[in-house]
Structures are given as structure tokens and as C-alpha cells.
């Protein structure tokens, strides 16, 4: 995830200071890991260094002085380029579940037991996310974030089901190698 581009996106709406950017990020992407303040300030400094953002002024309304930043024209171009770029579909993702299944076969333990337990943990997480998204008054950003996670967990589960059904063949293949 590109924090610099997301900050540029948030700055596209108008000048803002670090504290506000962090707050808006966490509101806008409710299921994402919250941004650390330190990360926001470091990223803003890099954006300025690279000419993608610049200091707009300072605010000190009743509190500590805060530097306001704004996007430059180059920042706007960079944001548009990034937002239109295709994210490479990852065909060979690192698959820890598969690695554990193969290692279980190599160690002559029972991969089916592991898969069942993993499956139950995935289903439990899906129930939690479904409860979050169906709660009364949930905003659409939260629903869509939960949907994204649910679709990925669902894909894992379907993969685990097919793998569980083919363990005998896989075991023979791993043992023969």
C-alpha cells in the first residue's frame, strides 16, 4: 500500500495538516491499519522533498502550531498516474497455508487436522466481519472493506476445501519426490 499516494489523494481535496490527514485516513479506510503519526509526518516531508507537496502555511488556533500542506501540480499528476495504473494481479502469492500442508506431509503429521482447524479459524473471522458489516448503521466504506476481506477469506476456504479433498494424491507426490 502506498502511503504517499494515499496522502496525495487526501490532499487532493485541499490543504491539510498531518493530524487531520491521519484522522481522515482512518475514517476513510475503516478496516485498514490506522496510520501512525510518525509515518504521516515522514511521508509528508518526503513528498515535499520530491516536489509532490509543499507547505501551505501554519495553523495555531488555540493549540500547538501545525504545518499545513498542499499538493503541487506534479503531485496531482503523480496521483492520477498511480490511481490509473493496473495493480499487478499476483499469480503466485506466498501461501503459508500450502507451505504448512507440505511441511506436515514431510514431517509425517496430519495435514487434514491442520486444514480443518485453519478452516474453522477462517470461518470464525468471516462471521466476525459479517457481524461488523450487517450491524445497523454501518457505513458503506466499512461494508466494502469487510467485503474485500470476506472475498479473500472465501477464496482461501475454497482452496482449502479442494486441497483437503486431494490430500492423498498430494501426500503421494510429496513422499515420492
Amino acid at each position: 500500500m502506498s502511503t504517499r499516494h494515499i496522502l496525495l489523494g487526501l490532499l487532493a481535496g485541499g490543504p491539510s495538516h498531518g493530524y487531520d490527514l491521519k484522522r481522515r485516513h482512518d475514517e476513510r479506510f475503516p478496516q485498514a491499519r490506522p496510520l501512525a503519526y510518525g509515518q504521516v509526518y515522514t511521508t509528508l516531508q518526503r513528498l515535499v522533498r520530491d516536489g509532490l507537496a509543499e507547505v501551505d502555511g501554519t495553523d495555531s488556533a488555540g493549540g500547538p502550531e501545525r504545518t499545513r500542506y498542499r499538493s503541487t501540480d506534479e503531485g496531482a499528476r503523480e496521483l492520477a498516474k498511480w490511481a490509473g495504473e493496473i495493480t499487478p494481479p499476483a499469480p503466485f502469492v506466498t501461501n503459508e497455508i500450502f507451505a504448512k500442508v507440505v511441511c506436515a506431509i514431510l514431517a509425517s503429521t496430519e495435514p487434514a487436522d491442520y486444514l480443518r482447524a485453519q478452516r474453522a479459524a477462517h470461518m470464525e473471522r468471516m462471521r466476525q466481519l459479517t457481524a461488523v458489516k450487517t450491524a445497523t448503521g454501518t457505513d458503506l466504506a466499512t461494508v466494502l472493506s469487510a467485503d474485500y476481506a470476506l472475498s479473500h477469506l472465501d477464496a482461501d476456504l475454497r482452496w482449502m476445501n479442494t486441497t483437503a479433498a486431494r490430500l492423498t494424491t498430494l501426500t503421494a507426490e510429496v513422499d515420492a519426490a
Binding site: R116, M123, M126, R127, T130, T134, L150, L153, D154
Partner: peptide, 19 residues
């Protein structure tokens, strides 16, 4: 699975037996 996640619990049937 996404529909099953609306439930409180899951019982899985495999070849006519509940797991």
C-alpha cells in the same frame, strides 16, 4: 462460505456425516 458466515455456528456435512 460468505452466506454461512451470517450464521452463529457451522456444521459441515461430509459424505452424509456431520463434522
Amino acid at each position: 462460505h460468505q452466506v454461512a458466515a451470517y450464521a452463529d455456528r457451522e456444521a459441515r456435512l461430509l459424505d452424509g456425516v456431520v463434522r
